[in-house]
């Protein structure tokens, strides 16, 4: 694929219909397929992990419980007592993104979180949810947040547009952060993999040098494991922060 003098770093993000004509008709590409795989993996992790229902958990059950406690504490600590209601949503969000990020690291796989359409949809969902919760919890007082408390009224024409802009930029930053991180990571992996192939074409010295990019790719894989978890966490914690502001009075 990337052999020759050019490197096709972005070809990996192309969508192709799966299941032949049926996939084409249903607009079903490898991206939704990986979403289903990610969802099944998350559900299987919980169902299989919790099957023993042991008072003293085994390793898999302990892992499932740690995941539950981790997100539960994050939701309740950040949002407050109302966080219990949003906990399943935050849990779904975190593990959907985490599984997507990690599945994308497998060979021949696909990272649906590297598509800006997906991340924008996720961010808009969070944004719309937080606005709905805000209006429900605070009513018209929600709009008072656009004028910072204690600021001089004379500055309102300046402050209110800035506040509105910063509020509206939330879904943008939320979606671009995840999308850009995933794209950058996958491009880097592809670049160094291509270097290896190019160097291997140079004969004996190239074979020796080609080890370098492989080593770097191993390190990059570790970095991507970190980034994948970190971005899922950032997405979830920011969701919690927005929801806290929504339920706060």
């Amino acid at each position: 694929m990337a052999a020759g003098s050019t490197i096709d770093a972005l070809g990996q993000f192309e969508l192709h219909p799966v299941l032949g004509g049926l996939g084409e008709a249903l607009r079903f590409s490898q991206s939704p397929l990986m979403m289903i795989v990610a969802s099944v993996a998350v559900l299987a992790f919980l169902y299989v992990g919790m099957r023993p229902k042991a008072v003293v958990p085994g390793r898999l059950q302990a892992a499932a419980e740690i995941c539950y406690d981790f997100i539960y504490n994050m939701a309740v600590d950040t949002i407050g007592p109302e966080g219990r209601a949003f906990f399943p949503f935050v849990f779904t969000l975190f593990f959907f993104i985490l599984a997507g990020n990690y599945l994308g690291l497998l060979p021949f796989s696909f990272a649906f979180t590297s598509h800006v359409a997906v991340t924008v949809a996720l961010a808009l969902m969070v944004f719309v949810l937080s606005v709905i919760v805000s209006l429900k919890a605070q009513g018209a007082k929600f709009f008072a947040h656009f004028m910072p408390a204690g600021a001089p009224v004379a500055l309102a024409p300046l402050l209110v547009p800035i506040e509105i802009l910063s509020f509206l930029s939330r879904p943008v930053s939320l979606s671009i952060r995840l999308f850009a991180n995933m794209v950058a990571g996958h491009v880097m992996l592809e670049m160094f993999a291509a270097f290896t192939i190019m160097l291997a074409g140079l004969g004996l010295i190239g074979d020796a040098l080609a080890v370098g990019p492989v080593v770097i790719n191993v390190a990059l894989m570790a970095l991507e494991l970190l980034v994948g978890a970190l971005q899922a966490y950032v997405f979830a914690i920011l969701t919690c922060i927005y929801l806290r502001e929504a339920v706060a009075h």
């Binding site: 991206s31 979403m35 649906f112 949809a121």
Partner: peptide, 13 residues
């Protein structure tokens, strides 16, 4: 397929 994945994603999510 780009928008299709969003619709599928919404259903799956």
């Amino acid at each position: 397929l780009v928008i299709g994945q969003v619709v599928w994603g919404a259903v799956i999510f």
